[in-house]
Amino acid sequence: MVRAIRLLGVFLRIGLLGEAQYRANFVIQLLETGLGLVTALGTIWIVFSQTDTLGGWGPAELAALVGVYFIVYGGIQLVVAPSLQKFMEDIVSGNFDYTLTKPADAQLLSSLSEVRVWRVADVVLGICVLTAAIIRESMTVGWPQTLQFLLALALGSVIVYSFWIILATLAFWFIRIDNLLQIFWAMYTAGRWPVGIYPEWLKWTLTVVVPIAFAVTVPAEAVSGRVSGMTFLGAAALALFLALFSRWFWRQGIRRYSGASA
C-alpha cells in the first residue's frame, strides 16, 4: 500500500512535469469541464422549472449528484482511464514486456503509469458543485453523513476500478477493446440522473452490468444520509467480489501474454 502511494507520487510528478509545459491546457480543460457542468446544471434547472421533485430528489440533491458525477468522472480520467488505455496500446505494440520486467506489481504499474494532471479540474469543480449544493440548501451534513459519503465513494471507486481492470484484461484475448470502453462511457452518462428513475431493465444494467449506481448515485444519496445499511452491505459485497475477481482475472490474462517476439 505504501509502495502503491509512492509509485502514484512518482507518476504524478512525471505527469505534472510533462504537462507543466502546456499550462494553457489547464485553462482549456477548466473551460471545457465548466461548460459540461453548466450544461448539466442547466438541464436540472429546466427540469425543476416544471416540477419540485424528480423521483424523490430535490434540486439541491440532484446538483449534489452532478457534483459526485464529476468527481468520479475526473478520478477515472485522471489516472485509471489513461493508464489502462496505455496498457492496451502496450499489449498491441509489445511494450508490455517492459512493464513485466519492472520490480513492481504489473497490475499496479499498469493502472498508474499515466496521469493526466489537468483532469484535476473535473474533481475540483465537482467538489465545488457538491459543496455549493450542500450550503445552498443548508442541508445538515454532519460527521455521520460525511463518513457515509466517504465510505460510499470509496466502495464505488473500488467497484469502478475493478470493473476497468476486468475490461482492460480482456485485451489479453481480444487485443482491441476500445469499443467496450466506448460502451462504458456511453452508459456512464446515464449516471447523471439517479438510477432509481430508470425502467427496471436499465436500472439493473446500471447497477450490476455497468456499476454506475454504486459509483455515483449511492454516494450522492449518502450526502443526505439516505443510504440504508443493506445498500452499504450490498456495495461492500460487490466491491469485495469484483476486487478479488478482477485480480484473479488479471492473473489469467498475464499467463496468456506471450510477449512481442516470443
Binding site: 466506448q182 456511453a186 452518462t189 446515464a190 440522473w193
Partner: peptide, 19 residues
C-alpha cells in the same frame, strides 16, 4: 457507437416521463 446515440434520448425520455 450507436449505443450512446440511442441511450441519450432514452435518458431524457425517462426524466420527462418521471416529471
Amino acid at each position: 457507437w450507436m449505443i450512446g446515440m440511442i441511450l441519450e434520448p432514452l435518458i431524457y425520455l425517462t426524466v420527462w416521463t418521471t416529471v
